[in-house]
């Protein structure tokens, strides 16, 4: 509906996941926070569509709020 593709699209999910993890190797918590923020901005520019980015942000937020509603804690 909103253009955000959420079906399975990644050929090698393990490799992709590892690329994300490797990027944080040896970084402090503060550096990792920066890495994630820069990563998101770079990916957002690659996507180049504010609507898709907003849809992804809304989807992520809904998932976090869902945890909250279940009494869980996303930061645990």
């Amino acid at each position: 509906m909103n253009g955000l593709l959420t079906e399975d699209r990644i050929k090698d999910p393990d490799a992709l996941y590892q690329a994300l993890v490797d990027a944080h190797d040896g970084l402090s918590a503060a550096e990792s926070l920066q890495l994630n923020a820069r990563l998101i901005l770079l990916l957002a520019n690659h996507i180049g569509d504010a609507g898709i980015v907003a849809a992804a942000a809304a989807s992520a937020r809904a998932s976090v709020l869902d945890d909250r509603a279940r009494g869980g804690d996303s930061t645990a």
């Binding site: 926070l33 994630n36 820069r38 998101i40 901005l41």
Partner: peptide
Amino acid sequence: SAAIRAFRDAALALARDHGFARRM
């Protein structure tokens, strides 16, 4: 918040090399 500030600082840091970040 710390996360929002991280975005702000990320845009500033990337701005050195990337036009798209400069525009943010």
